[in-house]
Amino acid sequence: MNVETKTIEIIAQQAMLEPSDISLDSTLEEVGIDSLGLVESIFAIEEAFDISIPFNANNPTESEFDISSVRSIVAGIERLIKEQA
């Protein structure tokens, strides 16, 4: 399963939506994921891809990991997989 499909699956599960309801341009806010849901999604992503994501809930927008859209999250994961391989 590729990174994009798996990531959308994780976000959909967290948002209690179908994967088909999530697009690459969706933001977490749009799909209804709050701060606690975000922390849980980050955890699920780390577990799924065996990576460690630099993320501090105190300043989510300033973290190196860009969570502004599903597309940016997928790109961030792909980068971390390469870096941490």
């Binding site: 922390v39 955890f43 105190n58 300043n59």
Partner: peptide, 20 residues
């Protein structure tokens, strides 16, 4: 650690650059 609210360097209450 799991909650992602902990600082790695210092506790800086009320400071704009606080990080947990």
């Amino acid at each position: 650690e799991g909650l992602r609210v902990m600082s790695r360097d210092a506790c800086r209450p009320f400071s704009a650059n606080r990080n947990g």
